[in-house]
Design a protein around this nucleic acid. Structure first.
Length: 656
RNA sequence: GCCGCCUUAGCUCAGCCGGUAGAGCGACGCAUUCGUAAUGCGUAGGUCAGGUGUUCGAGUCACCUAGGCGGCACCA
């Protein structure tokens, strides 16, 4: 007998050998009909599988969020079945459920074309209609390998071969088709429903390794209902409107062109935004005890050899040779330059921690396929800094850094999506004991500073030390690493950085490489998507457009512009002989936060009518009131906090 | 870099089975002076990404090159 505890807390006993379906049937016939899967002690199981024991028991239906992943997984199997029916000779590999959908990787000589997706989708719907029972079978390892080899499924045979001895090999059969799979699955293909759509075609390497064969991946999305599918498609469409490349064009922020692939041409408005962000970060760094420096863009090969970059990073570096035979490299990172500054003169333990910051323009030769708008470029600027410190200062410096990062993200209104800790790689410098300390320090310090899980990434650290990664999410759900903190035991050694300790001995400092925005370009791309271009006043490139109803008010409009500019605001004027409706529409489309409309009435009364982006009401203020209120609102958050602290009545700090 | 798709006016996009290039917006000109998301009329804009080929004839078909987009790999 087994004991099952139901979600309402009630408990019942069942005979050994009972299946999830039996239990559902014992509750209600209607429940049995709706049941798709069961959850036993948090683990999903097939409905028709004999329960392996008792525990917390739950029946999942279409409506259960937990069932969605299985619906998607099944959809991928149905797609694989459809593909093998339509394109005999195609080998299957793996096909998991992913966020919002699923994919399946196939091995086939001739690539699929976009047109094939329609016929595959059609066949999938037929398979759903066939209502094929999905049956779990446990196979013997040798037999399974022999079977999959025989039918020409080399990849499946390889997967089984690589499974640890003693692992249960399960094969799921649906109709004539079968696939090696861990499961669980729905009772039959009918239950997957038809709320799915094949979305894209891509190449993908077998087991994610570019040295392996390239497979063909078909992506799809699948949902519990048509309504959910439509909502998803609409969401994607909306997200595409936030694309920073599109908004960058509409708002005239920047452009990219062939002759400078991966290099951003910042237009006046985009550069204004850039400078506002840079100056804000600069103030926060100064406030956080950093000193800003500037190091050369191009340095001799010998330095890059000494730092190890020539060997480890050479393939990504832009190099050049002079007529005199010098070999130079454009800097891909700022660290070697900073060590040079550290090494000038003698440093004492009293100088540590020494925090050296630079908005350092770096160039890296990124693979062409990696480029993406201004998010992934070849020329970018890091809000970089290196903290030279003693080993016992690592933890405190890390906590300080993560707090600063979190506060800065907060001021920009972006939300940290995840924090990851990249752990020691196979090839590494330093002893295990040092790595143990380094990893646990970073982990502890990060957890202390943010109330968030820290996901471990085994083997992904740099050869010289572990690395904390701070990820933000873009408009279409892709996540990007922005902030980072890397511990480095190696570079101070390679470039021979030392300080004099209390006992007079020479010691090696530890270096923390850290960045908050990461790349300014990427961070601005994130900001553009985060706000869909509708920036808060302090960030908006143009904060106010003053525009007239008729040319009678032109002179007054100029006066308004002068006063608002005197209050520190970024103001433009639009005196075009167009209807007010037209001008409002145009400035709204380019996301100007405040439109100040002036007509004869305002001119006579010395007032302005402020219209906020996204609202159709207006606020009539005197010119002096408007200037003061807007200037106050336009204060960057850090200065706003200062001014609130100062509480000096009537005093305002100039906005940028 | 690899796989797939795309590239037509400044922008967004039509262009059928191969028959000689279109729209809207924008720009420019003229008229209009108007009260909160598109005033009217007119004018100019194209080596159909570049190249080679097939064809009587190519924006359309084939191949090559470049760039872009979506993934993969790589990465801030």
């Amino acid at each position: 007998m087994i004991d099952l505890i139901f979600p309402d807390g009630s408990q019942r006993q069942f005979e050994d050998g009972v299946t999830g379906r039996d239990v559902a049937a014992s509750i209600a016939k209607s429940l049995e009909k709706k049941a798709l899967l069961i959850e036993l002690d948090g683990q999903l199981l097939d409905l028709d599988r004999v329960l392996p024991g008792g525990g917390a028991f739950k029946i999942l239906t279409r409506e259960s969020p937990e069932a969605l992943e299985t619906i998607r997984h099944d959809a991928s199997h149905i797609m694989a079945e459809a593909v093998q029916e339509l394109f005999p000779g195609t080998q299957v590999t793996i096909g998991p459920a992913i966020e919002d959908g699923f994919y399946y990787d196939f091995a086939r000589e001739t690539p699929f074309s976009l047109d094939d997706l329609a016929s595959i989708e059609q066949r999938m719907k037929e398979i759903v209609d066939r209502d094929e029972k999905i049956v779990r079978e446990v196979w013997d390892r040798k037999e399974a390998i022999a079977h999959f080899s025989d039918i020409g499924e080399a990849y499946k045979a390889e997967i089984i071969t690589d499974l640890p001895e003693g692992e249960t090999i399960t094969v799921y059969r649906q109709g004539q088709w079968k696939d090696l799979c861990l499961g669980p699955h729905l009772p039959s293909t009918k239950h997957v429903g038809k709320a799915f759509k094949l979305t894209k075609l891509a190449g993908a390497y077998w087991r994610g390794d570019h040295r392996n064969a390239q497979l063909q991946r078909i992506y799809g999305t699948a949902w519990a209902s048509e309504a959910d599918l439509d909502a998803y498609l609409k969401r994607v469409e909306e997200a595409e409107k936030r694309d920073h490349r599109k908004i960058g064009r509409v708002m005239d922020l920047f452009h990219l062109q062939e002759e400078g692939r991966g290099m951003v041409f910042w237009h006046p408005k985009g550069w204004t935004l850039y400078r506002v962000v840079e100056n804000y970060i600069r103030r926060r760094l100064e406030d956080g005890g950093y000193a800003e420096v500037r190091t050369p863009q191009i340095m001799d090969r010998s330095l890059w050899e000494a730092s190890g970059h020539w060997e480890k990073f050479g393939a990504s570096m832009f190099v050049c040779e002079t007529d005199e035979g010098e070999e130079l490299a454009v800097k891909p990172m700022n660290c070697p330059g900073h060590v040079q500054i550290f090494k000038v003169g003698q440093k004492s333990y009293r100088d540590l921690p020494l925090r050296m910051a630079e908005f350092g323009a770096c160039h890296r030769y990124e693979p062409s396929g990696a480029l993406h708008g201004i998010m992934r470029v070849r020329g970018f600027t890091q809000d970089d800094a290196h903290i030279f410190c003693r080993e016992d200062q690592i933890e405190e410096e890390t906590t300080r850094f993560v707090r600063l990062l979190n506060s800065i993200y907060g001021d920009f209104g972006v939300e940290l999506h995840s924090v990851k800790l990249a752990l020691r790689p196979d090839l590494r410098a330093g002893t295990d004991a040092v790595w143990d300390i380094a990893e646990s320090k970073l982990d502890r310090a990060a957890r202390q500073a943010v109330n968030m899980e820290v996901e471990a990434l085994p083997g992904e650290g740099a050869f010289y030390g572990p690395k904390l990664e701070f990820h933000l999410r873009d408009a279409i759900g892709r996540t990007w690493q922005c902030g980072t903190l890397q511990l480095d035991f190696v570079l101070p050694e390679r470039l021979d950085a030392t300080y004099i300790a209390e006992d007079g001995s020479k010691q090696r400092p530890v270096m923390l490489h850290r960045a908050i925005a990461g790349s300014m370009e990427r961070f601005l791309g994130m900001l553009i998507e985060n706000y869909a271009g509708a920036f808060p006043l302090w960030l908006a490139p143009t904060q106010v457009v003053v525009t007239t109803i008729t040319s009678d008010a032109d002179d007054y409009a100029h006066q308004v512009v002068r006063e608002l500019r005197a209050a520190g605001l970024r103001v433009e004027v639009d005196l075009r002989n167009e209807k007010i409706n037209y001008k409002i529409r145009e400035h709204s489309l380019t996301k100007t936060p405040v439109i100040a409309v002036v007509g004869r009435r305002e001119a006579e009364e010395g007032k302005v009518a402020l219209r906020r982006l996204g609202s159709d009401g207006q606020e009539i203020l005197t010119l002096a009131q408007a200037a003061k209120a807007l200037a106050n609102e336009a204060l960057p958050p850090d200065l706003a906090r200062l001014s609130a602290l100062a509480m000096a009545p009537g005093e305002t700090l100039g906005a940028e």
